[in-house]
Amino acid sequence: MGRASGPAALVSVCLLLTACGTEKGDTRPPSAPTGVTAQAGSATSVHVMWNSSTDDTEVTGYEVHRSGRKVKDVPGERHMVDIGGLKPSTAHTFTVRARDAAGNLSPYSAKVSVTTPAAAPDDHAPPTRPEGLRGRAEGSRAATLTWRRSADDQGVASYDILQGGTRIHRVPGGETTALVTGLRPGVRYTFTVVARDAADNASPASRAVRVTTASEPGGGPGTAPAGFRATGRAADDGYHIDLSWVPPKTGGRVTQYEIHLDGKLATTLNWAADTPRGRVSYSLYAGEKPGVTHTVRLRARLPDGTWGAFSARRTVTLGEE
């Protein structure tokens, strides 16, 4: 339905993109990752998490080290990873450091240690499903989840917290509550919990619970595209609505948008690669009749897979000077 303006095109969509590249002469490294935690998920695996680093340009990746040796490279938008192939009943020490687009490496994070549990030979029975999952928003950027303890013949080693089917957190088997942080204001999240034993047998997922975070105090949801503009334009084939906006600050780049015209989905914009951080433009074909009034708004799919808040609603009358 839409026709795009600009030099880059994907899926019949052309966009005015701001060139994005590595700044020459960037020698300043990112900050060291903070909040590093390590939780044994089984007798042979550990789940490592950390807070995002900051950089004057952009953090493009993280290195995870075990006992001084790099064991994983992680993309810049992710802040967790599973390390497998470990020895049971063994203490393991992990550190993390960040890397920017110029290849500058941050200082190492603080060291964290974790001991994997003993192996459970011939254990093929998974834990029971976690029951009674409940959730509540803790302001605009966190949620608390609680559930009843699962049972297992060898004991539960850990619980995985899943958001939209993707694991985002892990807590020890003795815990039945989790605080999930790093959420976005004004977004509805779906969580489930899975129990694991030392042999890495996984239980069925709990029932889903839905939690909506509060809007940002005084500023409304922080996930909506900003600076949204819409103007009508006449062309040889009829009328177009020229749109432009600034992507929401999501901690990563947005690759998908929905444009809604008169309350209905008009088109979806997709990129195979990251969109720019600067203003994005798109031209929506709106028909041949002048004098027709339309309302338009859009929203972005966030890096965590959820849809962000809608932009402001704009009204355009075709053919109106």
Rank of each mutant, 00 (worst) to 15 (best):
L162W: 10
A151D: 13
P30I: 12
Q154I: 14
P130A: 06
R210Y: 13
G252C: 02
V46Q: 03
M49G: 04
R141G: 11
Y108P: 13
I83Q: 04
V193T: 00
I168D: 02
G232A: 14
V209H: 05
L17W: 09
L261W: 05
W307D: 12
N104E: 06
A273N: 14
Y282Q: 03
G278V: 11
T60G: 10
H240P: 00
V36P: 04
T267G: 07
V71R: 01
G218V: 02
A199S: 10
S244M: 05
G232T: 07
L243Y: 04
H47W: 08
A137M: 06
G319T: 06
G182H: 05
W147Q: 02
A309P: 10
V246A: 12
P117G: 05
G68V: 03
R188T: 12
R297G: 11
F191T: 01
P127V: 02
A19T: 14
A309Y: 06
G287V: 07
A226W: 07
A199F: 12
T181R: 13
D262T: 01
P276G: 13
W307S: 12
P248L: 02
V187P: 01
L183Q: 01
L302V: 05
V71I: 05
P248S: 00
G84A: 13
R301I: 05
P247G: 00
S42Q: 06
L133T: 07
V292T: 14
W50F: 07
T212Y: 13
Q163M: 14
L261D: 07
A40N: 05
A43M: 06
M1W: 11
T116S: 03
D304S: 05
Y62M: 00
T212G: 13
A143W: 02
H240M: 12
T268K: 14
Y159I: 01
T295C: 09
T250C: 10
L17V: 15
S53P: 08
P126Q: 04
A178Y: 00
T60W: 04
R99V: 13
T190C: 11
Y285I: 08
I83R: 05
H124R: 15
G251K: 05
R253M: 11
S31H: 02
G132A: 08
R233M: 11
G21I: 04
C20D: 15
S140N: 13
L15V: 05
D236P: 15
A300Y: 04
G155E: 05
L302M: 12
S12H: 15
A38Q: 08
G287I: 07
K87S: 15
A199V: 02
H169C: 09
A91N: 14
A8K: 09
G227V: 09
H79V: 15
W245V: 07
A272K: 15
G85S: 03
R297D: 14
G218C: 01
V180A: 10
P172V: 00
L284K: 06
V112N: 06
A91E: 12
S109Y: 06
P117D: 01
T306M: 14
R149M: 10
T37Q: 09
G155F: 03
P204R: 03
V171D: 01
V81F: 02
L318T: 04
I259D: 05
G6C: 04
V96E: 02
A214Q: 09
T255C: 15
D262L: 01
L145E: 00
D304Q: 06
T223M: 02
A235E: 12
D55I: 11
V112Y: 00
K87M: 08
